[in-house]
Write a protein that binds this DNA or RNA. Structure first.
Length: 888
RNA sequence: GGGCGGGUAGCUCAGCUGGAAGAGCAUCGCCCUUACAAGGCGAGGGUCACAGGUUCGAGCCCUGUUCCGCCUACCA
């Protein structure tokens, strides 16, 4: 018999590479929209094209892949769309940095040449992350790969922009926005991160215009005083409300400032007087609009003081101006005091430089009407898992403000709006216009700004399916089945996709959203390059294999918000992969080339019946757990079944049958072994596609089994009700109890493992006697006994080690083997332990409240439990006394 | 300020509708038993953050306290 010898340890690398390529070349994961099967679709959260794969991606991809592979097994028509996003600011930064090394800026190249240059970069480097996605084993459809800035997606963006504009949901205007001095662009509110930083609160005197005294304001940014246009006090503040309507004089500038009343001002904070600087503070901007204040902008786009400030300060950065201004105030005796004050500072999420509120002309999406629909669709049409994230989703939508979508960069979807030089009107159109739509003048100039990258990302669930064209994909796969993403982009992304999907497809973009945790390092810190605590998924794959990494992430997936990953865990699961591999090796050594055609229901023997029953239970629980996104449970069920049941017990129990002469038993056992092994590979496949594929390729088959060698195309194993046999579990428990009980005696008494011993079992029932007799040879081999005697009247020597298993008395004669003191101590320990638990149960049963109120079956259970323990205790005590009688 | 999540074995965490506290890793014994030493067999280890409450019964439900983490926010 020739049989391919498997390597002694699992080597993931050749399997992984071979099958990645095979799946892609054979288009295994390219579905036919006209094909059979209910649709199941997922769009990938497109990673940043400049990015490298990090653990968060790895987790995200693994979970999606489990869902996709599992649903393929269920016969669904599965589409998983891959792609990347063009990450406007980040990508432009990358290429600008390159240019800088050449001593150039983008302005030296000009817009068109620069864009060309970015495309070159994208083609060369930008797809890096896609090859990394392949390494994870993601079963995406590579033929449908998308990019948020490719032609088809540009078409969708254009369509959406124009329609929203025509409906009045997109508008242009002068507003205060978050401005990044370094990136030189506006940012949306959620692109600003807040960091608590120590600062100072400066108390500054502002004289009253009528010379009747002064007010003291408190400010963290004294330099902005140059752009103050009012002082505000709370109208209910009796200290100051008589001043409302009067004027103060702005120090260093001399401008007169109206004193206004607004209940926004917090009486408790600072001095109760607020300087109002509409152009440089979001809140002041609102106050300014409300009270119709002047808006004076004193900083330019680099954060440098401009011509609206007194000449002395012009050309200084804001920070430099602050120093000078404080000195000047001090000199004039207007600086009352400076106290420490911690406050939140907004920083750019891309470059971490401090954000400057800045007034400029920008484009906005009016969010309220869109948000209303998006809110109403949850949970009726879209359910969020875990459910508690729903509240966070609502909170954001309820407090939403208009979305600033214009960015002052070049890499991105350029806003399709043209201003007429002649009449000044805007033309917004899907096709590039050649003339003004109002006056017909040919003299029109296109907007310079591009759109926020998230604008195109928001269309992803339908733009990737071909919208605005009428495609088969859209008809078949929209709405998508599930979105899998981290909570950090719930706002950025999920909510906006909901809005856009509802607005343009009149259906939610996904039926379910599964929000997973963020991966952190083993100390709970966010992984980041700067702190150097990054665990790189690629290096983990190199070291331990993709499956080990995937299994690790899956087993962690149920945790709250953080996954604290350590390399040690991955290593542990690599061991598990090796265990699976070696169980297969064992199988291969003991299976014939052609698996015998035996009816599983006719396979005899405790081990076979038990494992087949357990296999059915495992199948059911895998289906349940996957359907409820309980990924960690999937991992746990499989781990325990494979290691603790299949390997530890089943494989050991069938060895005699496999090595034996009884051909009927052997054939039946081979069939069961093969069944469990092969079906376990199918169950495991969504989590660990590579090793299961590797094993599937070499496993023999029964005659007539012409299933594909490509495990990814095979259905979920069929359920076999006829193999369910709960009685086998009960019998197995007895068997395992006896084996473990005797092993315990042996190790606890420090008896050499190889020492020949005898075993006597005094049984309590004919059933138990039958079970144990039937498996006597296994008790001998697994627990290493020479002679085993089983029966109701068995009399063991008084000098025996003893245990009680389900009422059956187990005795191991110790004469000449070991001193009896240690056995006595061991028995005492067990009796004490038993006593303790019995106490609890009998107290419970002694409580009339329990007996009267608890459900009868619970009470009954407790009674049986107590009786069993009582019996065990009696027997153990007798056995102990028996031993004591020979010790004198 | 508001919201959310968490405090269970030395470590990392499970524990779904309340019914004798679990896993992995680590630790301690013994074993190179012909699938696997990346292994096998066995053992030890927990006032489930604290205080109340509901209940016959609470890790789980309620209230309060405390500590940690995250998100969010217009105290200058």
């Amino acid at each position: 018999m020739t049989r391919k010898e498997l390597a002694k340890v699992y080597e993931p690398w050749d399997v992984e590479e071979k099958w990645e390529n095979h799946w892609e070349e054979n288009k295994t994961f390219t579905p036919d929209p006209d094909g059979p099967g209910e649709s199941y679709s997922i769009v990938i959260p497109p990673p940043n094209v400049t990015g490298v794969l990090h653990m968060g991606h790895a987790l995200n991809l693994t979970l999606q892949d489990i869902l996709c592979r599992f649903n393929r097994q269920q016969g669904k028509n599965v589409l998983w769309v891959p792609g990347t996003d063009h990450a406007g600011i980040a990508t432009q930064n990358v290429v600008e940095r390159q240019l800088k090394e050449e001593g150039l800026t983008r302005h030296d190249l000009g817009r068109d040449k620069f864009i060309e240059r970015v495309w070159d970069w994208k083609k060369e480097k930008g797809d890096h992350i896609l090859s990394q996605i392949r390494r994870i084993g993601a079963s995406v459809d590579w033929t449908r790969e998308c990019f948020t800035f490719d032609d088809q997606r540009a078409k969708a963006v254009r369509e959406v922009f124009v329609k929203l504009y025509e409906e009045g949901l997109i508008y242009k205007g002068d507003y205060i926005i978050n401005w990044c001095n370094r990136c030189h662009t506006a940012l949306a509110d959620d692109e600003v991160e807040h960091e608590a930083k120590p600062g100072k609160l400066h108390h500054v005197k502002y004289p009253l215009a009528d010379g009747s005294g002064h007010l003291i304001v408190a400010t963290t940014r004294p330099e902005t005083m140059l752009a103050d246009t009012a002082i505000a006090v709370n109208p209910e503040d009796d200290r100051f409300n008589h001043l409302i309507g009067k004027e103060a004089v702005l120090p260093l500038v001399g401008r007169k400032l109206p004193i206004i009343g607004d209940k926004y001002v917090d009486v408790e904070f600072g001095t109760g007087c607020l300087k109002v600087t509409p152009a440089h503070d979001m809140n002041d901007w609102e106050l300014g609009r409300k009270h119709d204040l002047d808006i004076i902008s004193m900083l330019d786009e680099d954060g440098v003081v401009n011509e609206n400030a007194p000449e002395k300060y012009r050309g200084m950065t804001a920070l430099a101006a602050r120093v000078v201004i404080l000195a000047d105030l001090e000199a004039e005796g207007l600086l009352e005091s400076i106290v420490d004050h911690d406050h939140n500072v907004g920083v750019c999420y891309r470059c971490k430089s401090v954000i400057e509120p800045h007034v400029s002309t920008q484009w906005f999406v009016s969010m309220k009407p869109l948000a209303k629909k998006a809110r109403a669709a949850v949970p009726s049409e879209t359910q969020i898992y875990p459910e508690h994230w729903t509240k966070t989703y609502y909170d954001w939508l309820d407090n939403i403000r208009d979305w600033c979508i214009s960015r002052q960069i070049w890499w991105g979807h350029r806003i399709p709006a043209w201003t007429c030089e002649k009449c000044g009107k805007l033309t917004v159109a899907i096709e590039d216009p050649s003339a003004c739509s109002s006056c017909g003048s040919k003299n029109i100039v296109r907007e310079e700004d591009v759109l926020d990258t998230w604008f195109s990302s928001a269309l992803w669930p339908f733009s990737t399916l071909g919208w605005p064209d009428d495609t088969k994909e859209l008809a078949k796969y929209y709405p998508t089945s599930c979105l899998v993403t981290g909570f950090d982009i719930l706002f950025f992304w999920v909510a906006r996709m909901m809005m856009m999907g509802l607005q343009f497809k009149e259906q939610v973009p996904f039926k379910e959203v599964y929000i997973h945790a963020l991966v952190r390092d083993e100390n709970g810190k966010k992984m980041s390059k700067s702190t150097g605590n990054v665990i790189d998924p690629l290096s983990m794959i190199d070291k331990y294999g993709a499956d080990a990494l995937r299994f690790t992430l899956t087993s962690f997936a149920a945790m709250g918000r953080d996954i604290k990953l350590s390399e040690q865990r991955i290593e542990g699961y690599k061991h598990f992969m090796n265990k699976i591999w070696n169980a297969t090796r064992f199988g291969m050594m003991n299976l014939p080339d052609e698996i015998p055609a035996v009816q599983l229901s006719e396979a005899d023997g405790l081990a076979n019946k038990w494992i087949l029953h357990r296999l059915e239970e495992v199948k059911k629980s895998i289906v349940e757990a996957t359907g409820e996104y309980r990924f960690n449970e999937i991992a746990q069920i499989l781990y325990r079944f494979i290691w603790s049941e299949f390997c530890d017990w089943y494989l050991e129990m069938i060895k005699p049958a496999l090595y034996g002469e009884d051909e009927t038993t052997k054939a039946a056992t081979q069939k069961v072994l093969w069944t469990v092994l092969s079906e376990t590979m199918l169950l495991l496949h969504p989590v660990t596609p590579f090793i299961t594929q590797g094993i599937w390729s070499v496993l023999p088959r029964p005659a007539g089994d012409d299933r594909s060698d490509d495990i990814a195309t095979l259905p979920f194993p069929e359920m076999r009700e006829e193999c369910l046999d709960p009685a086998a579990v009960a019998r197995m428990e007895l068997f395992m109890g006896v084996v473990s009980g005797t092993r315990n005696i042996r190790t606890e008494l420090l008896i050499e493992p190889a020492k020949k011993l005898d075993l006597l079992i005094k049984t309590v029932s004919d059933e138990d006697k039958a079970v144990l007799e039937e498996n006597m040879h296994l008790i001998k081999s697994l627990a290493r006994f020479e002679n085993v005697t089983i029966g109701p009247d068995v009399e063991a020597p008084k000098a025996s080690g003893a245990a009680v298993v389900q009422g059956n008395e187990i005795s191991v004669p110790l004469e000449g083997v070991v001193d009896f003191e240690s056995e006595l101590a061991r028995l005492d320990k067990n009796i004490t332990k038993l006593d303790k638990t019995m106490m609890g149960v009998s107290n419970k049963l002694g409580n009339p409240g329990f007996v009267n109120n608890a459900p009868p079956e619970v009470v009954e259970k407790e009674k049986t439990k107590l009786a069993d323990m009582d019996e065990e205790k009696t027997k153990l005590t007798q056995l102990k006394e028996r031993l004591e009688s020979v010790m004198g």
